[in-house]
Amino acid sequence: MKSFKFIFFLLFCIFFNLNNVFGENAKVDEISKNLRCLICQGQSVYDSQSEFALSVKTLILIKLESGSSEKDIYDFLKSKYGDWIVYEPEFNNYTLILWILPLFLFIFGGFLIARKVIINKR
């Protein structure tokens, strides 16, 4: 019974937090979170207050207003600063192993386990 009370309390809290607040330029925030700042190299453009990051944010706003899509903006910045600037590595020849290797290891592990279980069963 206690657990049920807890769940309802949980639900209560969740519903009363759902009044989403968004910034002046929610889309700019969203895009700049996926960009890496060049000046302070561990931070995202969104988190950084460096001159460069501020300019990038302004540029994103200008581009959005002139009708560019999210992908256009990423491509534009990639053409200027290289793939390094986006946090999400694109799936291409260079990053093939990056995306495939963990999945391969997962399947390989599953294979080893399956073999062991089947041998044990016999």
Binding site: D83, I85, V86, Y87, E88, P89, Y94, T95, I97, L98
Partner: peptide, 19 residues
């Protein structure tokens, strides 16, 4: 991965939260 990629191809990428 970025370390390895750089040694082999000199390409630099970021692997961040989305990955």
């Amino acid at each position: 991965y970025p370390i390895f990629l750089e040694v082999f191809t000199a390409a630099k990428i970021s692997v961040g939260p989305p990955y």
